[in-house]
Simulated scan of single mutants.
Amino acid sequence: MSGTCRCLLIFFCFLQICLPQMLEEPKNFDIVPRVVNGWPAKKGDVPYQIAFKSLRYRYKRIYMTFCGGVIIAPNKLVTAAHCFDEKTSPCRKFWGKSVKASKKLVARTYAVAGNLYNLAVFSSKDTFEDGQWRRLREVIYPRVYDFPKFDIAVAFTINPFHYDAYVGPIPIASRYRDYVGKCLVSGYGRISKKETSEYLILAHLDLIPRRQCNAIHHRNMQHYVCTSGRISDVQKGDSGGPLVCQGTGDPNEKDKGILVGIVSGHRERAGTFFTRVSSYYSYIQSKSSRIKKSYLLFIVTLYCSLLF
């Protein structure tokens, strides 16, 4: 191969591999979103809100929210991939378009709707105070997920939620829009660097146009929705929660608005960024509660697991 051809090959490799990473993989982004300067939610304000809870105090059976989520169908939820990602063997990402969260993590997590409290005592009964508690069947997220890229996950409950005045779905955005104005965010996380909220908190966030967002973060932010943190913001514990807008012009939008983003992370002095739902609309819609497996996949995965 001549020197010229070799240089051209290196150049095109740079365009294909390095340049997309420079443009689309934000660096120095933290998973520390919080809802601050908001107000306490009331029953029915955000019926689509999910609290993913895990056991905090075993002897009291008290569960604490570690991430948020959104109801989009009776047994189908959307959240952030980093809420369920565990740094394990690369074998789990060897095959197919999606991977599943570990069974151990899924088994110890409840998806709770209609509950306003960060800490809650598990109840097998669906009462007004306790909300609806559902065990998870599985959680799926893209194989190429690498925070904050592709930070989207689809979760499935074993039993469906029963829709009522306090529990119900929200439609998801299907088309790209450069959103403007204010949108509603909700979460159970910290309300300051040291203080954690006792209740579900709501806040209106100012959206930043994409061009301005690109300039602030010094990257191509087309797969994110960005907000300003000057007045209100989100914090750790709110990850995976909803950003809901109205008047977007999206064909899926209903009376109470549409889900445009999932809380992903935060960058100091730059504001919070949300995974843009419309970028993953086809992925979310296509996912069912089963990832196809094969005998060959089983053998490859088993062999791979012996190497790591």
Rank of each mutant, 00 (worst) to 15 (best):
P74V: 11
D164R: 05
V121D: 05
T157Q: 06
F161C: 04
S174I: 01
P160K: 04
Y57C: 04
L105Q: 05
D164M: 06
Y166D: 13
K104I: 10
Y163R: 02
Y117N: 13
V121G: 13
A111G: 03
T109D: 05
F66Y: 15
D126M: 10
F66H: 10
V167T: 15
I62L: 14
F122R: 07
S124M: 14
V106H: 01
I170A: 03
W133Y: 11
V99K: 02
A80Q: 03
E129G: 01
R92H: 10
S186Y: 06
G131Y: 13
F66N: 05
K97P: 00
I172R: 00
Y57K: 14
R135L: 14
N115C: 11
M64P: 00
C183E: 00
F147T: 11
I140R: 05
V180L: 09
I62K: 05
P74L: 11
Y145V: 09
Y63H: 13
L77Y: 02
H82A: 04
V112R: 01
D178N: 15
R134W: 07
H162T: 14
T127H: 08
Y110K: 02
P169G: 06
G69I: 13
R143T: 15
W95F: 07
D164I: 07
K194W: 00
Y63D: 09
D164Y: 07
R61K: 14
I172H: 01
V167Q: 01
R143D: 06
F122T: 04
K97D: 11
A80S: 09
D130M: 11
F147C: 09
H162I: 15
F84I: 02
P169F: 13
Y179V: 06
Y117Q: 11
F161I: 06
I71H: 02
P148V: 14
K194V: 05
L184Q: 02
V185K: 00
F84S: 03
L77Q: 01
S98T: 12
N159P: 00
T79L: 10
K100N: 06
R190W: 04
V185C: 04
V78Y: 05
P148G: 11
